[in-house]
Simulated scan of single mutants.
Amino acid sequence: MSGDDRRVAVVTGASSGIGAATARRLAAEGYRVVCAARRAERVEALAAEVGGLAVPCDVTHDADVARLAEAAGPVVHVLVNNAGGALGLEPVAAADVDLWQRMYDTNVLGTLRVTKALLPALVAADGEGIVVNVGSIAGLLAYEGGGGYTVAKHGVHVMTETLRLELVEQPVRVTEVAPGMVHTEEFSLTRFDGDRERADRVYEGVPGPLVAEDVADAIAWMATRPAHVNVDLLVIKPRAQAAPHKVHRLPS
């Protein structure tokens, strides 16, 4: 760690939204944050801002993940698997198989790759190692049009539960945060392939959707509990959202 004795946190998908907010929040908690994302310029700017390390990384590529593990070093205290996302809202009968594949590759297999690669460093953290998988309420419930995203996030949820069972004798906590509606600059825009009007309608009239900093605060709280405390699952939604399909909207 080149003389830097801060605890190490690795955050994937750190170029924007929840990932960037989490990197800032963990840095404020005193961690040296390894910021990983595909967009090199963004993570380099973020790492410079928080005094961390930028690692350009596509979690669907083995070589990128191996480079991330090497850059993180032999001891990692916190791993936040945030890289993922949703694509499309087609019903299952009209599913775009390529989009489903991309969502599964990023949300599920990307989380798997990074966790496998960093697990030895988490075990080496003297009982302080914690994995925080960023899931979604879409991983707990189904809704029309959710299709490939609900499948992928259900996969993240079950993988988290399985890993916790398998590591029960290891000094590593395995946790999941499952946000509901979070208004970030890119999530819905990506889902609708850049259609700003459709993306904006997702949040239209909703009084107080979550923002990225709300989820980052929850992640930091989970990561900073005493080492014997495991927050298995933290579901966080705006007050205006009772379920994926049940959202209070103010009249226009």
Rank of each mutant, 00 (worst) to 15 (best):
I236C: 12
A36E: 03
L79P: 05
V131C: 03
A152Y: 02
A72D: 07
R7F: 02
V156E: 08
N133L: 03
E144R: 15
L89S: 12
V55T: 08
H183W: 11
E204D: 15
A47T: 04
A71W: 01
A218H: 00
E70R: 15
A63I: 00
H183S: 13
E29Q: 14
E166S: 06
V114S: 12
L140D: 07
T115C: 11
T224S: 11
A27L: 13
V206C: 07
S2L: 15
L119D: 01
A23P: 00
V211H: 08
H228Y: 09
A40Y: 00
V43T: 07
R191C: 13
P91W: 03
G84R: 05
P244C: 11
V132L: 07
N230Q: 12
G13E: 03
L165M: 15
P179G: 06
T111I: 05
G84F: 04
V131A: 01
D98P: 12
G52I: 05
K237L: 14
V151G: 06
V33Y: 02
D58V: 08
R6C: 07
S16T: 12
V158G: 12
A212W: 06
V132Y: 02
P56D: 13
R196T: 15
S136Y: 01
A95I: 13
T175V: 10
Y203K: 03
I219C: 09
G127V: 04
D214E: 10
V174I: 13
R24D: 07
P56K: 01
P226I: 00
S16E: 13
V43N: 05
R239T: 15
G13H: 02
V50R: 02
G145P: 00
A220E: 11
E197S: 13
Y203P: 03
V168W: 09
W221Q: 05
E41D: 15
R225N: 09
A28W: 00
G19M: 06
A138W: 05
A240L: 09
P209L: 08
L141W: 00
A54V: 02
G17Q: 01
G84H: 04
M222R: 03
W100Q: 06
V134Q: 04
S15N: 11
A20Q: 12
V34K: 07
T60G: 15
D193Q: 14
T160Y: 01
G88D: 04
V97R: 14
G146L: 09
G110S: 06
